[in-house]
């Protein structure tokens, strides 16, 4: 499995798309540091961001910016969808490993690389911000690391869903559509349900675990009950994605 992941790393290092994604990431974070304001691409349809003065720039940025979301899409696309579109998956399946192991390696690889990108990016951002803007705009490392750590389960869940989508759709275009439109679709569905009286309760719950609000609330609010329920939801999503992805890959014809 480590071999598979090393191979993936080698191949990713040769693909241009990923470099563009990483550059975009670096660019937005660099801008955020230089302009002293949190910024980036936001996905959520309802950003409820209150500028609380006691929250410093870096924590704000971490709770608000999801540019890495697109880097993740790029990553999963290069690692999984390309294998299907180029049909190279058969090379590995015929002479390296079986379907289950292939799936596990790809799934784990995606999660590990995604987390790696997330952590390295944010650490870099922290260091740059600290140097450029000084302590006035950056919090101490402990609380920053804690904020990052709180995000990790959500990142794992996102990457898992992406892996599942890539294995489920196989076609790169379909995967991209669903991965990009996913959060908006989720919010739209939740809001529609909210407008109907009978499903209002469910909708409220759904909106509570909407990606954007989850990412900011988990960092900005220190409500431990909400934190635990978030983690539970994330683990459930991760496990379900893993299982569904595994099913849809191993139980279907490869071609």
């Amino acid at each position: 499995m480590i071999n598979m992941m090393r191979a993936e790393l080698y191949r990713l290092s040769k693909s241009k798309g990923l470099y563009i994604c990483l550059f975009l990431l670096l660019f937005t974070y660099g801008m955020a540091a230089v302009l002293k304001a949190p910024g980036g691409i936001s996905l959520s349809a309802m950003v409820s961001f209150d500028k609380s003065s006691d929250v410093k720039l870096d924590i704000n940025q971490i709770s608000f910016n999801y540019t890495y979301y697109f880097a993740f899409i790029g990553l999963v696309f290069s690692a999984i969808s390309v294998e299907f579109s180029e049909k190279t998956v058969k090379n590995t399946l015929t002479s390296v490993t079986d379907k289950s192991r292939y799936f596990i390696a790809k799934f784990t690889g995606t999660v590990v690389f995604g987390l790696y990108v997330y952590i390295v990016m944010h650490l870099l951002y922290y260091i740059v911000n600290r140097i450029v803007n000084g302590t006035a705009y950056s919090s101490d490392f402990g609380s920053y690391a804690a904020a990052m750590a709180k995000h990790l389960p959500i990142m794992i869940a996102i990457l898992s869903i992406f892996s599942f989508l890539a294995f489920f759709f196989r076609k790169g275009a379909l995967f991209n559509t669903f991965a990009i439109g996913g959060p908006v679709l989720y919010t739209t569905v939740a809001l529609t349900l909210y407008s109907i009286n009978a499903t209002q309760k469910i909708a409220e719950k759904l909106l509570e675990y909407e990606l954007g609000s989850m990412l900011s609330k988990i960092v900005l609010d220190s409500d431990s009950k909400y934190l635990i329920s978030c983690f539970t939801v994330c683990s459930a999503v991760t496990l379900i994605s893993f299982f569904l992805g595994w099913l849809s890959f191993t139980r279907r014809e490869t071609d």
Binding site: R6, A7, R11, E86, K87, T92, V96
Partner: peptide
């Protein structure tokens, strides 16, 4: 070792790089 149906490799990589990728895998 096998070649089934059409040969499939990554278009953006060279012949050597493609085989290097499979060397890692194997």
């Amino acid at each position: 070792g096998c070649l089934i149906e059409n040969p499939a490799f990554f278009g953006n990589m060279t012949a050597w790089q493609n085989l290097r990728y499979y060397c890692y895998q194997k």
